[in-house]
């Protein structure tokens, strides 16, 4: 199976799944230190899908295009833009580069449809994203913290999580 480029993927998805593909706006990554170079806007070349169409788009990749292997789900916190970006990475078993689906959700209401009912391999990826970023995966069968203990409060990988001080140390004394 020939490898699809992001442009070809967008073309085919626009044809077969109307409304799923969004136009990607450039992201403003946070400013580097004052002595560093000026921050540039980050314009992704990957396919941005609407959150409501995620499951349909992922199943389209798997069942129609043959990208059966869900390798990775990464979350990036774009604090300056007020959104989370989720990066889904799919491969075919024939080899070659990945097809990437990106998804943007607002930071104050991060809810995403879960892929776990269709793709059990997404289970731990989504639990990790929930644990460290506080993203709710609607439809996940067992959305519990995976690294931190259940009573922990806060989302440690968010950019605004305090890096100093620990309310858990010395709380009982």
């Amino acid at each position: 199976m020939p490898r699809l480029s992001p442009e070809e993927l967008r073309e085919r998805m626009a044809r077969d799944l109307p409304g799923a593909v969004l136009e990607a706006a450039p992201l403003q990554v946070t400013a580097p230190p004052a002595h560093g170079p000026q921050p540039g806007a980050f314009l992704t070349t990957d396919t941005l899908v609407a959150p409501a169409h995620l499951v349909a788009a992922a199943l389209y990749l798997r069942d129609t295009l043959g990208y059966a292997f869900l390798s990775d789900i990464a979350v990036v916190d774009y604090l300056a833009d007020g959104l989370f970006e989720l990066v889904y990475r799919f491969y075919t078993l024939d080899g070659g580069d990945a097809l990437v689906l990106k998804l943007r959700v607002p930071r104050d209401q991060p809810a995403v449809p879960s892929l776990t009912p269709h793709w059990p391999g997404a289970n731990f990826h989504e639990r990790e994203a929930f644990d460290l970023f506080g993203i709710t995966f609607v439809g996940h069968p067992y959305l519990r913290r995976i690294y931190m203990w259940d009573e922990f409060e806060g989302w440690p990988m968010r950019k605004d999580f305090p890096k100093q001080g620990d309310k858990y140390i010395g709380a009982d004394e």
Partner: peptide, 27 residues
Amino acid sequence: GFYLVSDGSGKPYRYKVRAPSFINLTP
């Protein structure tokens, strides 16, 4: 796998590890 996002500074803006042992535990 390593997923890296750079903001142009000397530190990674995002650094994600796709750890094989972690995912192999799912089943």
